[in-house]
Computed example of a mutant assay.
Amino acid sequence: MKELMIDRPGAVLRPDVGPLKVMGVLNVTPDSFWPGSRYAAAERAIESGMEMFGDGAWAIDVGGESTRPGAAPMSPDEEWERISPVVSGLAKHGRVSVDTRHPEVAEIAVHHGASIINDVSGSLHQLAARLGTGYVGMHSTAVPVLAGAQPQYGDVVTDVSTHLQDIAMAARAAGSSELWIDPGIGFGKGVEDNLRLLRALPELCALGSSVLLGVSRKSFLGAVTGRTVEDRLPASLAVLAPAWSAGVDVIRVHDVPQTRDTIAMLETIWGRG
């Protein structure tokens, strides 16, 4: 019988990468794209964040402004009013990331215990360096994304890679020591653009910076599977295998325990981590 040859994921690509870390999504907003992630009351949001920590989340990403396509922008004052008690409450128990594009909100959140700035605008690297926090710089053509917008790319992988390299270079020049780049799946990208970026994860992970990836329950998964947002957990989990294999460092998700279980199986089978 001919021997079956199996190409083991992770055996060649970035074998030095540690376990895939899970960042829990916590939206203190009434209009996020998935109702299951909305927490209008601070007390309930804090309870949910504590549950995520208990389920093994490495960090909780707290956001007060929806960035879904067509979302209405909000003022920094209103955004901080929404997230203030949640950031302060959770920072006592674990690592907190603030998901914002407003420098005023990012800075005050850090003073209240946040230790990561998750910047959907890709422009707050100097602030993060000055404050000495972790920094996530994301690719996007516009935030919030305009409803129905269809940006055109020469080559989406090349364009996004170049943009992320520019962000990383600027962040390092500013003095950032803890840095992640995020290709911005779903932010100003069509279904095929998102799929091409996922196929190119090994290339993105080879750019020289740690990679954070967020695909949880996003609309392109619905376009592929025909499922509504409530039923996109299996499709979200399916992306973990190529992300893990490529060497992604952090996965940003709504469903922490299911994600942790899937990663545990990948690491047990393939021996990374």
Rank of each mutant, 00 (worst) to 15 (best):
S219E: 15
D7F: 12
R260H: 10
D231E: 15
A147P: 03
M1G: 12
L213K: 06
S115L: 10
A109G: 08
Q150I: 10
A235I: 05
P35G: 00
V87N: 00
R252T: 11
F187A: 13
A174K: 07
A91C: 06
V136G: 04
I108T: 04
K189E: 13
M169S: 15
A170L: 12
W270G: 11
M265R: 13
L90V: 03
V17D: 08
T67A: 13
G132M: 04
G208M: 00
G184S: 03
L195M: 14
Q126H: 15
D119H: 01
V105A: 09
R260I: 15
S177W: 02
S88T: 11
G186A: 05
G64I: 09
D7G: 15
A142I: 04
L221W: 14
H163Y: 12
M74P: 03
A235S: 14
V215L: 10
L240Y: 07
V156C: 09
P144A: 10
I83C: 07
A241S: 10
G113E: 01
M1H: 15
G54C: 10
P73W: 03
E267H: 13
I108L: 07
A173Q: 08
A128G: 11
V253T: 11
L4S: 05
L266R: 02
P183Y: 03
R196Q: 15
P73E: 03
G122P: 03
D31N: 05
R95V: 10
D261E: 15
P242S: 11
L127F: 06
T228H: 13
L198C: 11
E107M: 04
M52P: 06
L4P: 03
A40M: 06
P234G: 10
Q126L: 12
V87Y: 00
R199W: 10
V62A: 01
V22A: 07
L212F: 01
G186W: 02
W80P: 01
P85E: 06
A128D: 09
P242V: 14
L26N: 01
L198F: 00
G222M: 08
V12L: 15
H112M: 06
L201P: 04
P76V: 08
A71R: 04
D31Y: 04
M265H: 09
G18F: 13
L212C: 02
S236P: 06
P242I: 12
